[in-house]
Design a protein around this nucleic acid. Structure first.
Lengths: 227, 227
DNA sequence: TATATAAAACGGGCCGTTCCGTTTCGTCAA
DNA sequence: TTGACGAAACGGAACGGCCCGTTTTATATA
């Protein structure tokens, strides 16, 4: 309920305001939630262009100093809003292609249908003009790639994937595809396109791919699983 | 030299200011170049966060109305700055892997060493809060993917790549990788990593890849070409 | 004369900060 | 257990500053 340390610590080591966090620092959790709710609402309803501290404060019926007390910047607030949102879980169908397609499908619809897409886009945009956010974002993506890479690692353990494959790099490729589609309003790709894209990463596009026919059959067979 | 129609027409059909473009519209080309120069300089020296019309005007010793006369928004100005920069040409080594690796290598160093990286990052960021830029950016990327896709099409013609491959989608994958690395300050990847990433797209990561040994030999042989 | 120009000023919005007076909540003595 | 105290949060208002996009004015140019 009551967090002892200010949220702002997440993004910034403050030298100032030492007095506050010395003992007291008893923030009103309802107020913090109201502010995060308002931030998310403003972002969804009016878009990133009109996302300002003042707008959030108005919406939350909070004072600007209250926001600045706990979040050092617009970006820190954005990041907390994003952190609060649910994440997409990695599928585990026993087949890497289905795992990756399912992952992308879930991610796209999650971004599209909830506010997390807007929030994440804003976060990326903000990172382009705020070095602190940029650093946090890079760290975050590293973690996400490692997490996504577990799907590839599982496929390795099954012998589905060569042992010397850099699973993080593969995750990077897949996530990059998702990022750019988010950033350019192309989250409507149908499953066939996603499957094709994943397939290119998985099987390559070489004409002399000996397994191509078999692979197509396997693909058809497994399409049922992920529905 | 002297463009008859305002640059702003590129991004926006103006209904207002009809009088100006009727016959007159004799813009001072030196002034326009000075403004674009100033915009680029501000962007490179102070970053996107301090890129404002006023800053550009100050730097160019121009009046704000002069800028607004010819560019409808900050975004339009940004886009013209980017358009003015040199593009990366597609390599044609006769081998798709080398083409793609060379393309990425050139793109990364071009983004890294010239101002085009900063400008493009800013453009993407701006697109997240300006629908007009977003539309222009999508159109632009479509064209770029088609252009990059020509490398894949050439490989198709050589029989290097299956005929039913969606070359635009492959270009999308490769470009997406580049985008996210630009957006997260990871343009320093060494060539080996680029080659590995491209290799995953080209040959897949399936363990039962029959051609993997031969492919590695071919790769070693051809590495000389692109240096 | 007609047009583009630079410069200045406008109203408006948001920034991040500083005050104000009020409310909340942990502490501690009665 | 109660109640007063004080620290620290709170909402609200206002500040100087920057930038927005526009308007006005006077100057230079062809």
């Amino acid at each position: 309920m009551l967090r002892k340390l200010p949220i702002r610590k997440k993004l910034m080591a403050e030298d100032a305001d030492r007095a506050r966090k010395s003992i007291g620092a008893r923030r009103n959790p309802d107020s913090a939630d109201a502010i995060l709710d308002a931030a998310e609402a403003v972002l969804v309803e009016s878009g990133y262009s009109s996302f300002s501290i003042e707008a959030v404060a108005r919406r939350a019926r909070a004072g600007k100093p209250t926001i600045y007390r706990w979040w050092p910047s617009k970006a820190a607030l954005l990041f907390d809003v994003y952190q609060r949102l649910k994440r997409v879980e990695n599928p585990d169908t026993g087949n890497l292609e289905d795992d990756l397609v399912g992952f992308l499908k879930n991610l796209f619809s999650h971004w599209h249908e909830t506010s997390s897409g807007s929030v994440f886009r804003s976060l990326i945009a903000e990172a382009q003009s705020d070095a602190t956010v940029a650093a946090v974002l890079v760290e975050y993506t590293k973690g996400r790639h490692a997490h996504t890479g577990q799907m590839i690692e599982r496929a390795k353990a099954r012998g589905e994937v060569a042992a010397d494959v850099d699973s993080t790099l593969v995750a990077d490729l897949v996530a990059s595809f998702a990022w750019t589609h988010l950033l350019t309003n192309r989250l409507n790709e149908d499953e066939a396109t996603l499957r094709r894209a994943v397939g290119y990463v998985l099987k390559g596009i070489a004409a002399d791919d000996a397994g191509s026919v078999d692979a197509a059959a396997v693909r058809r067979r497994r399409r049922r699983i992920i529905g």
